[in-house]
Nucleic acid binder design. Sequence first.
RNA 1: GCACCAGUAGCUCAACUGGAUAGAGCAACUGACUUCUAAUCAGUAGGUUAUAGGUUCAAGUCCUAUCUGGUGCGCCA
Length: 584
Amino acid sequence: MNIFEQTICELTASVLNSADESVTWEPCVLNKLVEQPPNPEMGDYALPCFSFAKSIRRSPVQIAKELAEKLQSILSPGSAVTGIQAAGSYLNFTVSAVAMAEEVLPDIFNGSYFKEPSKIALERVMIEYSQPNTHKGFHVGHMRNVALGDSLTRIYKYNGYDVVGVNYIGDVGAHIAKCLWYYRNHNTETPPKHFKGEWLGKLYSLAVKKLDDAEGQEKIQFQHEVSQILQKIENKDREFTEEWEMTREWSMNDFHEIYEWLDINFDYIFYESEVDEEGRKIVIEGEKNGTFERSEGAIGINLEAEELGFFMLLKSDGNTLYATKDLALAQRKFDKFGVKRSVYVVGSEQTLHFKQVFATLKRMGYSQVEHCFHLPYALVTLPDGKMSSREGNVILFSQLRKEIIESIQSVHLLEHRMDWTKQELEETAQKIAVAAIKYGMLNQDSNKQIVFSMKDWLVSEGDTGTYLVYAYVRIRSIGRQISCKVNTDVDYSLLTHPNEKKLLRQLLDFNRTILICGEQYRPSILARMLYDFSKDFSRAYNTCSVKHAKNKKLQAARLLLFHCVAETLLQGLHLLGITPPERM
RNA sequence: GCACCAGUAGCUCAACUGGAUAGAGCAACUGACUUCUAAUCAGUAGGUUAUAGGUUCAAGUCCUAUCUGGUGCGCCA
């Protein structure tokens, strides 16, 4: 509740309570009803009167009218609330722009506004995301996960949580055996110098193809060879372990390079290979004490009571499954990291799996499971269907990155190539590309499918990440051209333009929006808000010139406002994982 | 077959979780560059919110059924 909502709710509550003593309205209850009118001319805050109708026993329209009259009569002349009007069943309040400006601009200028949410120290939250498999290419579908998880991590940190952002690398399993089988027996190429992991991904899909295409005796032979490799890796055969470690490193190098380019930092990295044994022990122990049961040679848990069927935990050959490892991983998160809340950013195709994992953990006695949350997101698909590393029909992340960079450089940065350093040109292209990619992944709700088409990602107009960083750059450019320094000793009453007021309102609501984003696990709300904010700025930029302001006083006030817009935009972009360039 | 997710302008998406006249971007059309960098702005046009019922002061939003697309459903991850 900000100062204006507080005033509105307290005033209204006092009038309501004096009119009818049978019911007491608390200001905080009223605050939950407060909305924003559909257009700014109607007012800044709206209070629907439907819920008062029951106790007052009059129509909402009548109540709104009466409340408006009474409120107007008790309004003090110097109040921040300058207007109260009834409009149908709504009560609309207008707040003066000066009061808004005085409330928010100084705090943004000195930076305290952005530290406000983190003042309350909240519980430890672990956010697990990315989870790429080694020996497979990192494709654009993986990017959606990374953008979501990273943004969520930043939002939770901003909101005051003790966040541990973690990665969980899939470095064991049959896909690796297949890849190494092909690498040893059929590969003729020498590994490239760069993107060796991507190259392994190519070998993997070739391996799958070769295995699928083989027939008769040859097929049996191939399958035997692959399973032998899998066994040798599991038995820690020295020769194969070395090869596994070497190729795993190739993939990890690829991943690290991508994360660095994207400015993604994990606090901790788990590997499937390190929870493999732990998982097996948990399951075997669980079977002994009766939590789990043996069925058709395998071990699992009957979750019929939860309507989740039978959940397999260990294969009949004694080998571990994804589920096996997830149990061990969860145990580590709870026991070693003391996690109170645990978020899994994983594709929606695994919704059932996580319901089963959580139900199993609950049966094992982990009460923390109440605070485990699977954040699902829909797939990034190709126009002709699902992307699959197995089949090799993927758009690699490196390809998207390359094409976006080339597009930015050739279409827009060409004009600067004579007067900017090579380094600035490259860094600028990189920052814009990151903005375009991350914003593109975050600006729509995570449960909506994205059909990937390269040409859509090369667009730099309209509702794009480029638009947001462009807005930021415009403001910074103003600052460079005005000789006076930004300061808060300005006449706030000069910011009277509707476009200026819209910006003030955005600034006022910024922290609350981020709080909602976190609690709802939806960075898309932030992305959308920042787009609207940038749009409001662009309008103000075209109507409220700083350079050509009528006088120095107005110039100073606008300079402060736009400076605060830039600072807020910077914070918001940062929470999406985006760092804008200073010029472009 | 069962379960989950989605269906809103020609296309891609919003709609503060049940509230006022359903909003943006792209594409189309009209207008604004000796500029605070046009990667922008102003405007026009575009809708029976998949369909049919229901719940209530109020439904794109909740309930039921149907249709369409996607994703899962015991030895993959």
